[in-house]
Amino acid sequence: MSAHTQTTTHMVQPQSSDGAAIVVENFSKSYGAHRVVDHLQFQVQPGEVFALLGPNGAGKTTTVETLEGYRTPDEGTIRVLGLDPVRQAQALKPRIGVMLQQDGLYPALTAREVLSLFAGYYAQPQAVDALLERVGLTSAARTRCRRLSGGQKRRLALAVALVGNPELVFLDEPTAGMDPQARQTTWEIVRELKRSGVTILLTTHLMDEAERLADRVAIIDHGQLIAMDTPGNLTGGQNANIVRFVAPEGLDCTRLAALPAAKSAEEVRAGSYVIESDNIPTLLVELTTWLRDQNIALSELRVGHGSLEDLFLRLTGSEVRD
């Protein structure tokens, strides 16, 4: 079964574009003979945290850059806050915030100088010092950008995206390089933005980040939408029961799937296995007995619903892409 066939149950019905914060209709983009985005369609509703996920080369960056007005579509319609991001850029730019993945933030300026510079572009910006405190950069306010750590640069990029009090924020890998404390702080900022009605489009390679923050998730691969729904619905809601375990790689999944209580078994990545069952207690007995009889060491065992990472790997494959 192909990945595209597998996803039919995950698709949601298209929503009306009336009042949508982001509308992507039949969007395609090619570079030479290579089609990067292929008739992509989705919408983001006002006040929603929407995660756009996909492996490297899936078309995420091209899609987001088109939404931000940096690229033009070859086909289809793009609307952000009701505006064309290219033709109506002057009206749109003051209403959005962009957190770039690459932090090209004037290396000779201090963190406070950078934020003050960007604050000057807006009619009613946030207070610079309060925003630096909000992202945890008060102690680094006078540090030049070239001396900031990777995590500090990400926090400054977040502050730059928020300084203009935007209605919609694009967050590209927002917590990359952050320590656990800074990551939690960033997650809480995202939740605060949502509570205040800000729309957020999030791209991340951290599946737990998308699972915890997003109202809805869209997974794209080879430029096409292959799954879109709430994280709970995508991972099986309350109906799918999953046993995950870690053991030596290369176990015979056919034999695992043949356990009487098993519905399916898969090695989602090297040494990490997922078995689905409607009778978890019985499956646990069968699985542990089988592993013991095969003299296979078990290093981790978890019971629960499927994870977004499991689904992502099933749909897009586990190989690393450039």
Results as ranks from 00 to 15, higher is better:
209 E>P: 09
269 R>Q: 11
318 S>V: 05
9 T>P: 14
284 L>S: 11
204 T>F: 09
141 A>K: 10
152 Q>V: 02
221 D>F: 07
245 F>S: 02
298 L>I: 01
202 L>T: 02
120 G>P: 03
88 Q>M: 12
124 Q>A: 13
181 Q>L: 03
31 Y>S: 09
98 V>D: 04
9 T>E: 14
27 F>I: 12
230 T>Q: 07
248 P>F: 04
29 K>L: 13
105 L>P: 00
255 R>P: 01
166 P>T: 07
57 G>Y: 00
135 V>R: 01
111 A>C: 15
137 L>G: 07
307 S>V: 00
297 A>I: 11
78 I>A: 11
108 A>K: 08
295 N>M: 07
46 P>R: 08
167 E>D: 15
115 L>C: 03
63 T>D: 09
137 L>W: 14
235 T>H: 03
98 V>L: 15
259 L>K: 05
119 A>W: 11
93 K>H: 10
281 P>L: 06
244 R>V: 04
262 A>C: 04
310 D>V: 01
34 H>W: 07
301 L>C: 10
118 F>S: 01
98 V>C: 10
57 G>F: 01
120 G>H: 10
115 L>G: 00
116 S>V: 02
102 Q>P: 05
95 R>E: 15
182 A>Y: 01
159 A>N: 03
114 V>F: 08
178 M>K: 03
305 H>E: 10
209 E>Q: 12
46 P>I: 12
262 A>P: 02
308 L>C: 00
27 F>K: 05
156 L>H: 06
243 V>T: 06
269 R>E: 14
233 N>Y: 07
14 P>R: 03
149 S>D: 09
146 R>H: 15
267 E>N: 00
259 L>G: 01
161 A>K: 12
26 N>L: 13
